[in-house]
Nucleic acid binder design. Sequence first.
DNA 1: TATACTTAGTTACATAAAGTAAGTTAATAA
DNA 2: TTATTAACTTACTTTATGTAACTAAGTATA
Lengths: 107, 107
Amino acid sequence: MTDTAICPKFEAALNILNKRWTGLIIFQLLEGAQRFSTIESAIGISGRVLSERLKDLEKHGIVKRSVYDETPVRIEYELTEKGIALQPVLENIQTWAESWMESKPLV
Amino acid sequence: MTDTAICPKFEAALNILNKRWTGLIIFQLLEGAQRFSTIESAIGISGRVLSERLKDLEKHGIVKRSVYDETPVRIEYELTEKGIALQPVLENIQTWAESWMESKPLV
DNA sequence: TATACTTAGTTACATAAAGTAAGTTAATAA
DNA sequence: TTATTAACTTACTTTATGTAACTAAGTATA
């Protein structure tokens, strides 16, 4: 992407949030810590991409990964404070969607 | 995408907003009606994709396209009421970005 | 008249991202 | 010894995006 006159923090934020699946993953994790496979089936993302996104979100400090040494191993993902701070964004989208989106797709 | 238990309107909204460039295009249009080439250079998107996105946003009633029969022809894109209603979403992202994003990318 | 200029695209082709399905690892249960 | 489970990863296919050249309509200029 080339330079823009837009605030770099805002643009960086959009570069994370605008990625496919990111919104749904965060929304899903607002319900609390969850395992990989739970997220996977809850939002219908492929394992390959979920793995990629979670690493990305972890790198950005939005998601925290915890390993519990059980059998089989339990790994849980949860939002950090930074991630939880996105709740108002998601809520706003939801409010907008309820006011303005059609129930049935236009197609 | 497979079915989820998530509110379909919310999911449909995310399917629009989560697309690359959509957020920046809407943000840019919050400043008022603008021409194709203005948006293109303002946010650094390729013409090919901008054309695609604007058609999409128009189809969803978020953007309105107006043709002014001047020379050369002037075509302007602006947000509809539905599109303007997204302003709080973008503002929330901006607020979040200011609080939580690093100035420099983490690499 | 012929050539050039402008905006708003479109087209053809190359590269990057996402989807699919099978395979891997580690611990344990049958 | 074989099977099971969760959490990935790998190889491969399909889709999305980037790049650069091209088109169309309406003048303006040589």
